[in-house]
Nucleic acid binder design. Structure first.
Lengths: 142, 142
DNA sequence: TATTGTTATACTCTATAACTATA
DNA sequence: TATAGTTATAGAGTATAACAATA
C-alpha cells in the first residue's frame, strides 16, 4: 500500500483537503457548537481559566473567546468568578449543567468519531494516527 | 517518544482538537477563501465539472457549492458552459484569471503550510504523515 | 503603558427550505 | 418522479476595530 512520497507542496495540499473534509464531517454530527464544546472540555480537564488563557489555548482571538464564553454563560454552562488578586481577571468555571452537557455531548459527537475510528481502523492504524497527531500538533502549534 | 496508546474516545478527542487548531492556523494565512481555492484546485486537476459533482467531491451540499461557484464566477475566476446533451447541467470551467489566482494562492497559502512541513518535520515524519492522511481520508469519507 | 476583557460589526463557510427547469 | 441548479435565510465560527477597567 506504499505510495510514492509526495513533495511538501503536494503533501500540504492533501493535508488541507483531508482535514477540511474531516472537520466538515465532524461538524455534521448533531451536538453543541464545537467551539463551546472545546472550552467546556478544556476547563473540565485543566480547571478554571481566564478568557485570554482560553483564547491562547484554543488559538483564537480573545474577542472570539469572549463571544463563546458569553454564549456558554447565557446557557448556564459556565460561571465567572472574580480573581481576588487581579480584578481585571475572571475565572471561567464549569457549572454542574455544563459538566453534564459536556459528558452528553462527548458521548454523542465525539462518539461518532470514536466509533468510526474503531470501525475503519485497526489498532495498529490507530497507533499510527496517534503518532501523526503529534506531528500535526507541531505543524499547527508552531 | 512512544506514548501510551490512547483509547478510541481519547484519540477522537485529540484528533478533533488538533485538526481544529490546524484549520484555524491555515485560515489565518492571507489568501482567497479556502472553499473557493479548493474548487479552483479541483477543476484545475480534474477538469470542468457540474455544481453537483463539485459539491459531492468536496462533501458539501449543492446549495453551498452553488454559492461558492457563484462567488467565483462574479470574481471572473470560473465560467459556465452549457452541457449540450443535458440542458440542466452547466460545466464549471477555469478562466485564465482563475488559473492565475490559483497558482498565486497556492504559492502563498499552501506555501506557508509546505514550508512549515519542511521546517518542522523530517522526511521520515512527512512520510508518516502522508500515510496517516490516507487513514484520515477513510475516517472522513465513510 | 500594558493587560484583561468587552461590544459592535463583518466575513467565511455551511446548512435547510422552497423554488425553477429539464430529464 | 428524479435530477441539476438556484435564491433566501440562518447559524456557527472567527476576525478587526474601538473601547473600558485595572495593573
Amino acid at each position: 500500500m506504499d505510495r510514492e512520497p509526495l513533495s511538501s507542496p503536494e503533501l500540504a495540499h492533501e493535508l488541507r483537503e483531508t482535514v477540511g473534509r474531516l472537520v466538515r464531517r465532524i461538524r455534521r454530527e448533531p451536538g453543541p457548537p464545537l467551539a463551546q464544546l472545546a472550552v467546556l472540555a478544556r476547563i473540565d480537564r485543566f480547571g478554571p481559566a481566564g478568557v485570554s488563557d482560553l483564547a491562547a489555548a484554543e488559538g483564537v482571538r480573545p474577542q472570539s473567546m469572549a463571544q463563546t464564553v458569553g454564549d456558554l454563560e447565557q446557557a448556564g454552562h459556565v460561571a465567572r468568578e472574580p480573581d481576588p488578586g487581579d480584578r481585571r481577571r475572571q475565572f471561567v468555571t464549569l457549572t454542574e449543567a455544563g459538566r453534564a452537557r459536556l459528558h452528553v455531548a462527548r458521548a454523542r459527537r465525539e462518539g461518532w468519531l470514536a466509533e468510526t475510528l474503531e470501525r475503519e481502523l485497526d489498532a495498529e492504524e490507530r497507533a499510527q494516527l496517534q503518532q501523526a497527531l503529534a506531528l500535526l500538533a507541531r505543524v499547527a502549534g508552531g
